[in-house]
């Protein structure tokens, strides 16, 4: 019984560490992307890696390593509010930029070099 409990605790710790590692990767990449991108919309896209994926991964790590059910329940509530508040704030920033007349930088063509941009003939 004690060995099984130890194994579960070890698995939880490993899952928590893996999620924190994933969060670190996304946080670093998102920050670099935010500095490298040219316009507010693509910067916002890059920042969503930090604001959404990295933060969510940390919250998930806190959930799996929660020492008690009471704390885990609180983490679930925090995650639920995060699921609602995070996209709302991102949308508000994007909408403010859009209403302010900031034109987004758009790609002249489709992603794959040489590929025909679908819709060229349809517009």
């Amino acid at each position: 019984m004690s060995q099984a409990l130890d194994a579960v605790n070890l698995a939880r710790d490993l899952a928590g560490m893996a999620l924190c590692a994933v969060a670190s990767v996304f946080a670093i990449a998102g920050t670099l992307g935010m500095l490298l991108q040219k316009d507010p919309y693509t910067r916002l896209q890059a920042s969503s890696l930090v604001g959404t994926t990295a933060t969510f991964s940390v919250l998930l790590a806190a959930l799996v390593t929660a020492p008690s059910v009471a704390i885990a329940a609180r983490m679930v509530v925090i995650i639920a509010f995060f699921l609602i508040s995070n996209p709302t704030t991102t949308h508000i920033i994007a909408k403010y930029a859009w209403n302010s007349g900031i034109a987004p930088r758009t790609a002249p063509r489709a992603r794959k070099p040489g590929a025909k941009v679908a819709g060229d003939d349809d517009d």
């Binding site: 916002l44 896209q45 969503s48 994007a94 992603r111 819709g119 349809d122």
Partner: peptide, 27 residues
């Protein structure tokens, strides 16, 4: 908006305006 790579700029009735990072079409 929650999925990185797409941000909803505006929602008016059933019409959405979305900023799409990896666009593959304009249609």
């Amino acid at each position: 908006t929650f999925t990185p790579g797409t941000i909803v700029i505006d929602l008016d009735e059933d019409h959405l305006i979305v900023h799409w990072l990896n666009s593959t079409t304009r249609h």
